[in-house]
């Protein structure tokens, strides 16, 4: 699965990740909709800068959140967000 390891996730075109100070939540804003993110989803997506590989994102999150099931959950999450068309 070397192909998956090479993926460097980035937000898709016209998608913006931002904090909403009015509602105190993190949002993914895209054409015609806004998605309210859980804090952990936002923490993952903030690392999707197009330069960091998916594996490196998992490593980094595993260090930052040693008690969370990062290695199992994050790849699945990234894939799901890519299928939604919000990551490329």
């Amino acid at each position: 699965m070397s192909g998956a390891a090479e993926w460097r996730p980035a937000l898709a075109a016209s998608v913006v990740l931002r904090h909403d100070a009015v509602r105190d939540v993190d949002l993914l804003v895209l054409p015609e909709r806004a998605v309210v993110l859980t804090p952990s989803a936002a923490a993952v997506l903030r690392l999707c800068d197009g330069e960091t590989g998916a594996a490196a994102i998992v490593d980094r999150l595993s260090r930052d959140f040693p008690d969370a099931p990062v290695a199992t959950d994050v790849p699945v999450f990234l894939d799901r967000v890519r299928q939604e068309g919000w990551l490329r």
């Binding site: 909403d20 509602r23 949002l27």
Partner: peptide
């Protein structure tokens, strides 16, 4: 420009 600033402060994101 003012409408946009006020809209953002009110909670408009899009």
């Amino acid at each position: 420009a003012r409408v946009m600033r006020e809209a953002a402060a009110l909670g408009v994101v899009s």
